[in-house]
Amino acid sequence: MREGEKDPSLYDFRPYRGRPKLNWPDGKQVAVWVSPNIEFYELDPPANPHRKSWTKPHPDVVGYSHRDYGNRVGHWRMAEVMTKHGFPGSVSLSVAMCQHLPQIVEDANARGWEFFSHGIYNTRYSYGMDEAQERALIEDSIKTVRDATGQTIKGWLAPALTHTPRTLDLIAEYGLSYTCDLYHDDQPGEVHVKQGRLISMPYSLEVNDHYGFFVYNMSPREYADTLIRQYQRLADEGGTVMCIPLHAYLIGQPHRIGPFEEVLKHIAADGRAWITRSGDIADHYMREVTA
């Protein structure tokens, strides 16, 4: 990005109207990827001068234990319904999960899920890092996931969505191919970086379960209906990407998982969805579309 300028110059302006058709494999209309955020929040993390981790004095018992519910309870429920209906996960991973709870990482890996980095912990933020520190974070992410799963990460979702002006250039330099941190489009597109090639992968804040439940205050059934409407529209338009970003501590709750399963059933039965992983979408796009 162009640091300090009004326009960060992240990408070119390309209006939605008049674009060449983006074709997905087997004539599918919409690439659907489900993105569980598998996160570890620390009980007593050090302070970052630019952002508080917990809103309350440590220990923030409800804040911490609510997240921990995702790992003890929610993940297993969410993973089961995804597998049952044929949806692989593309995991936004707090990579310290590989040390803390390897059983969850191994479970996701065994299900054929992809991993990309979501930082070390969701309580350690990139704000204020110098270049060497940010390189250490990226190198740690690549090595930790490779050692634990054999996978080489292709993507990045900044820890707790905290960035520096150099993040995108650095992840491209390290060979990553996509970022999930930009929300300007329903299709992948080129991101301006100093070297290498980086694309933006449509993620979503709007249909993120966190937004659904705690920004828009939806009931579980209203959230399920929202996902179906989002899917129908993007499938009708074609050449699009739909991401369903999830947190096991939210969607894995007993009052939410049932309505959510209906969404997966609906999409799987519709027939227009390329049900896939973010890295596969990125690979396909980079082959089909010249930078």
């Binding site: 050090p46 003890r72 204020g128």
Partner: peptide, 28 residues
């Protein structure tokens, strides 16, 4: 601008929880 070196150190990055109140156990 940079952060204190401790911000990139993780003394409790180990198997299990980052405290000793309870161990990890999946509900299932």
């Amino acid at each position: 601008m940079s952060l204190e070196p401790e911000y990139l150190e993780y003394p409790l990055r180990r198997q299990g929880m980052d405290h000793d109140y309870y161990g990890y156990a999946s509900l299932f």
